[in-house]
Structure formats: structure tokens, C-alpha cells
Design a protein around this nucleic acid. Structure first.
Lengths: 152, 152
DNA sequence: ATGATCTAGTTTCCTAGTCAACCAAATGGA
DNA sequence: TCCATTTGGTTGACTAGGAAACTAGATCAT
């Protein structure tokens, strides 16, 4: 870092992380496209699958996106008939988001695609290596209190 | 994956990769913003730093972006006075992109920010762990022939 | 109970990509 | 040589998200 003067792109773990992550996400995007949804929509649906109903604010928190983004995402999913928006009891400002039957029906297939995508990319590692990777990522995420982060 | 029926988001390595990668890239974006550039612009400038001059097509390949994106990115950098676009000798279609003096001047400071960002996120790992992470990422990238991927 | 403040969500404007249509120049047969 | 194809690059339509302004409803202090 002193002999080298100007570090290279490839010197940084952040660089490799971005490369690999983008490739994984892009491949996954192509897969879920076959089900007519985007990656963000998958995350949204999966989040709702066991924490339903949820408020936009809760979703925003869980998904690491702004409320504005969630608002639009919810619009699209409602338009597609996968999510229902209803007034939440008690507070007339809040909305309740729940999975529509069609949305709930889609989740297992999407989960299978996520499994397949992981297998595609990480199947070349043995179980111990995958575990180590998982632990390293957890530690980095955990050290920062990231339970979620921007979809970006 | 059979007892579980529907896998969870957090079950997937791709999920954690995305979370961590987005956090790292986002933090880096904030850092380089202080130098008036974006992450994509940094990659562009750093690529040109030792492979200058380069054609838009070469840059697109190196950065894993479409030619359209490179075209616009180059526009912005030319506007900022960091990059020069000149007709390339021999082929009247092609353009030559080179670093303007101001652009070249900026690179070391940006490289230092990249180093700092890596230290921020991966400094908590010891050298062996960082090495292992690097190797795992390399293997996954290498297995796919990713030397670059979308900035997304 | 009423004005100040806070909270929930939406909307508007902006940025940075993709994709596909496009233009111009080079190449390569016939 | 001249047309068909390929290549290099730009442009326009579109998309997804962030930031900040905004609206409406709740809460709280007096």
C-alpha cells in the first residue's frame, strides 16, 4: 500500500464482492423474471409470506429500502394482483399489506428458484466452504448491524 | 429444503452477499462523493489510469456495462473535465478515451478511499480470513469467467 | 380542547442504468 | 466495385430507486 502507490481495483475485497454479488443477483433476476417478478418483488413477497400483514414502514425496514420505494413496489404488486392493500384498523393513516392468494401461491416456486440460483453459484464449493463463506458474511454484516440493506 | 418447504431469504448465500455488497458499495459511494465522483466513475477512472487510452467498447467490456451506459458515463466525465474524448487514429468510427490531467490527479486520492473502505469493512477479519474470503470469491467469479460484472 | 409536533404514506423530481433503434464507417464477398 | 453485413458509438424510451416536499392523521402539552 506504500510500495504500490495506487491500489488496483482488484486489490479490494469490496470489488470482488460487488462483482460476484451482481452476477448472482443478475442471474437470479433472469430466473424470477420467468415468474413475472423482480428480485425486489420476490423479497417483498417472501417477507410478507410469514409476517403478514405488515405495514409499508415495516417492510421498508425489513428490506432496507425507503418508504417511497416500498410505496411504489406495493403499487406494482397490487396491480399484479399479488398483494392486497387495506386500511389498518385503529390508525387511519396506516395501511395493511397482505399477500393475495395468487401472491401466496407464487412464493414456493420463487423460493425454489432462489435455491436453484444458490446451487448454481455456490454448488462448486463444498459444505464446509459454504459454511465458512456464510460465517464471514454474517460477521461483516453483524458487525455493522445489517439485518437488511438496500436492494439498490 | 424438503422439511422446510419454503426456504427463507436468509438461507441463501446470495442474499447475504447482496446485503454485504450493497452496504460496502453504499459506504464507498458516500466516501467518493466527497471527491465529486460516483463509484462507476471511480472504476472508469481507475481503469483508464493504466490502460489509457481505451475505447468505449474496451471500457464497457472491462466494467461489465453496456456501451450505452459507458457512452453516458464518458459524457459526464468529459463534462467534469476528468476525461478526454478524441478521435482514434485509423478508424473514424472509434473514439479514444484518456484521462485528463485533473482526472489522473484524482485517482490516488480515490484509491486511498477504496483502501479505507475495505479496511472499514474487512479490518475486523484477520489476514487469513480475508485471504480465504478473497479466494472463495475468486473461485466463484473464476468459475463463471467473471472478470467484470455489471455495476448495476 | 387546541395548537405544536410527530408519524405514515405518497408524490415529485432526479439519477443512473438497460434495451433497442439508430447512424456512420469498415469489411468482405460476389 | 458495390452491396450486405458487421462493428463502434450515440440516442431515446423506459425502469427502479433515493431524497425531499408534501398530506393527512395521531399524539401530547398546556
Amino acid at each position: 500500500m506504500d510500495a504500490e502507490q495506487v491500489s488496483e481495483l482488484e486489490d479490494h475485497l469490496g470489488y470482488w464482492l460487488r462483482i460476484v454479488s451482481n452476477a448472482v443477483s443478475h442471474a437470479f433476476a433472469r430466473k424470477v423474471e420467468s415468474q413475472g417478478v423482480t428480485v425486489a418483488e420476490w423479497v417483498f413477497l417472501r417477507s410478507l409470506y410469514d409476517r403478514s400483514p405488515a405495514s409499508p414502514t415495516q417492510l421498508a425496514e425489513a428490506m432496507g429500502m425507503t418508504k417511497g420505494a416500498i410505496s411504489k413496489l406495493a403499487d406494482r404488486l397490487v396491480d399484479k394482483g399479488l398483494v392486497l392493500r387495506s386500511a389498518s384498523a385503529g390508525d387511519r393513516r396506516g395501511h395493511s399489506l397482505t399477500l393475495a392468494p395468487e401472491g401466496r401461491r407464487k412464493v414456493p416456486a420463487l423460493a425454489a428458484l432462489a435455491d436453484a440460483n444458490d446451487a448454481d453459484f455456490f454448488g462448486g464449493l463444498d459444505a464446509e466452504e459454504r459454511d465458512r463463506l456464510r460465517q464471514l458474511l454474517h460477521r461483516i454484516a453483524g458487525g455493522r448491524g445489517l439485518d437488511a440493506a438496500p436492494i439498490d
